[in-house]
Each structure stands twice: as C-alpha cells, then as structure tokens.
Design a protein around this nucleic acid. Structure first.
Length: 358
DNA sequence: GTTATTTGACCGCC
DNA sequence: GGCGGTCAAATAAC
C-alpha cells in the first residue's frame, strides 16, 4: 500500500520536476537579454538543475531499486503533501489516528524528524532556545544512553493545537553536545513570527546590496551539498551524509498537489504555504501551477540564517547539526512558515518596499 | 494564583 | 516483557 503510494508519489514528483524545469527554462529565456538580472538568471539555472537532477534521481531509483521506499527519506514519504489532496498537516495527524490503514504504527505518525546537535559554546542547555516556546512534559532514561532524554512540546499545543514536539538529549560521546530531535511541525503563530523576522533579514540583505548572501542561497550544488550565507553572516551548510547517490538532498521539488485557495490564511496550513512563499521569495516570478512544497526543500530552506548543518539519518531521513557556535537559534522544520496573508514576497523584487511593508 | 517542571504510571509497539 | 513516548498529579518557581 505504502509502496504503491510511494511509486505514485514519485511519478507525480517526476512529472512536477520536469514540468518545473520546463517552466523555469521558459522564464530563463525572458532573462537572457543583457538588461536582465544576473542573479535571476543564476537562480533560475540553479532551480532548473535541481529539478532535473531530482527527476533523474527518481528515474535512477526506479531503474535501480525494487521500488522500496526506503531510499526515500521519511520526510518525503510522510510529508503532508505527499498524500491525497494536500491537506494540512494537522489534518494528516488526525488522519493518522483515524486511518489506521495508512499508519498502523505510532512510530510512523511523525512526518519527519530532525536531529540537531548543538555544539558547546552556545550557552544553551536542554532548554535550547530555538525561537519556540517549549514545555517539558517528560523525561526518560534511555537504554544505552548515559543521559536522560527530555521531552518537550510546543507551549501552544493547548491554545493553538500546535503538535510540534522535540526531544533533547545529551550526546553520549560529547556531553557538551545536545542532540535535539524535532517531531511534527509548528502550526502555532510562532511560525509566522519567526518567518517574518527571517524574511526581514533576507529582505534587508537584498536591499542593502549584499547580493552574495542571496546568491549563495541560490546555488544548490549537484553534489547535494550547499552552503548558505544569510543574515548576520551565519553560515548554513547542508549536506547529505548518506552515501547513497539516489538520495536527494537538498532539492527543490513540487509535488503535484496544488494549494487549495480556501486554505490560504488558515494558520494550520501556514507551514505548507511557507514553502511556496519562501520559494517565491527567491524566485518572485516563479509560479508553477503545481508548485507546492516538499520537506526536503523545506528542510534546506528552513535553516536560512541560522547556521545549521543538515545531515541525513536512517531514521528520520534528515538531521540538522548546528555547527556554528554563534547560532543561538536552531530551527526545526516550519520555522519559516510564511503566510500569504502576512508577507507579500513579490516585494522581493523590490526589497525596499518589502522591508518597509514587513 | 498561575505557570512550568518533575516524576511515577500508563500505553502502545516490538 | 522491555522499551520509548506520553499523561497527569505533585511540586516548584514566579
């Protein structure tokens, strides 16, 4: 069942990727004249390469594997838009409980999991300040682990139904390193607040002429490694430590499920919308009709300006490692939720107006 | 008094 | 039955 879903999903993704590449190529043509922005061209080229690389990767997988989904990160398989009609993730969670045919095991319920290693020097302990308000609800001694694991949930769980949780545990090997595992996605208003501040930072970068920062972010590499330089000089590096070449990290992708207009503005949906918005932020003119989001892209983008390293793990499909001690903020997926109501990223073409309005 | 944390108990999965 | 994750009452902090 899930295998079939996975294959269908791959087909859709493949189609989307190829379609996107085509659309991007068309857009690129409009930027070929000398007066056009070089950055825009660079970005479009990067995105085209991403789309085709991912499409090729999917094809490779189809040819080289038995179709098992274990090559697909859980983050992708379990992403909110990976199923059905792109229902909000909170609804997915409800479905998880109701539709046991799809998720029979509780362990499969989380859409994705991230691990964040916070190196010493951040001055942070178990109560990592990642921009969200967390409430500790439990602690357990884990078998084989030297240090207990703390369980945190979003403070707004009760008021806003935010289902995000995280687990914090000291690393056995290095007690100064905190391993933070995020689960679920923030659907609370914090997402918007963080998104706004992050978007402001990006806009200021653009408006102050720091084009290198933006350009860096727009240069994903085919080697599945890319570095971002945003905000206050924080460096974000993502890399795929998994040696399987058919894994795709990071990448832009666009599942075929479009965003339902009626969901726009729904706070529950903001974490999904943010993908589109963020994409729009870096490509204001990009407007694929099938453009939604995919967690791997999200995970790459959600770290903008924060100084995170992403690595892929067998369990979650993606992990983050905060490698920059200067970063006091680590971001789970969803940090950069952009609501269409809150931000008009078309201002990104006019950073000044964007900054003012935001 | 309110909010957050602690901690033992409980539940579901393997 | 063991383990990880969550619940909820008790406790602490503000």
């Amino acid at each position: 069942m899930e295998k079939r879903k996975s294959m269908e999903w791959e087909q859709k993704t493949l189609t989307s990727e190829l379609t996107q590449g085509k659309e991007l190529a068309k857009q690129l043509m409009n930027y070929l004249h000398p007066s056009a922005s070089q950055e825009k061209r660079d970005f479009l080229i990067s995105k085209i390469l991403f789309s085709y690389e991912k499409a090729l990767s999917l094809l490779k997988r189809d040819v080289g594997s038995d179709g098992e989904s274990n090559h697909i990160p859980n983050t992708m398989l379990e992403s909110p838009t990976s199923f059905g009609n792109g229902s909000p993730m909170s609804e997915i969670s409800d479905q998880d409980c109701k539709n046991k045919n799809v998720f029979k095991k509780r362990k499969t319920m989380p859409r994705w999991t991230e691990e964040v290693k916070v190196c010493s020097g951040t001055g942070l302990d178990g109560s990592l300040d990642d921009g969200y308000s967390w409430r500790k609800y439990g602690q357990k001694d884990i078998l084989g682990a030297t240090y207990p694991r703390g369980y945190y949930r979003c403070t707004h769980r009760g008021t806003q139904g935010c289902l995000a949780t995280k687990q914090v545990q000291k690393a056995d090997a290095d007690p100064s390193t905190m391993v933070v595992t995020y689960r679920g996605e923030h659907t609370c208003s914090q997402v918007l607040q963080l998104a706004r501040s992050s978007a402001l930072s990006l806009a200021k970068q653009a408006s102050t002429g720091n084009q290198n920062a933006t350009r860096e972010a727009e240069k994903p590499k085919a080697s599945q490694e890319m570095s971002f330089s945003f905000g206050a000089g924080l460096r974000v590096k993502t890399e795929d430590l998994d040696t399987r070449e058919d894994d795709i990290f990071p990448s832009f992708s666009f599942p075929s499920t479009p965003i339902e207009p009626e969901n726009v503005g729904d706070h529950i949906f903001c974490a999904t919308l943010m993908e589109n918005d963020l994409m729009d932020a870096y490509s204001p003119t990009f407007a694929s009709p099938a453009a939604t989001f995919e967690p791997d892209y999200l995970q790459a983008t959600s770290s903008f300006g924060l100084g995170l390293d992403y690595v892929q793990t067998s369990e979650s499909g993606l992990s983050e490692i905060i490698s920059a001690p200067t970063s006091v903020t680590n971001s789970p997926i969803g940090d950069f939720g952009f609501s269409l109501d809150d931000l008009d990223f078309h201002h990104f073409e006019n950073p000044e107006s964007f900054a003012y309005e935001s």
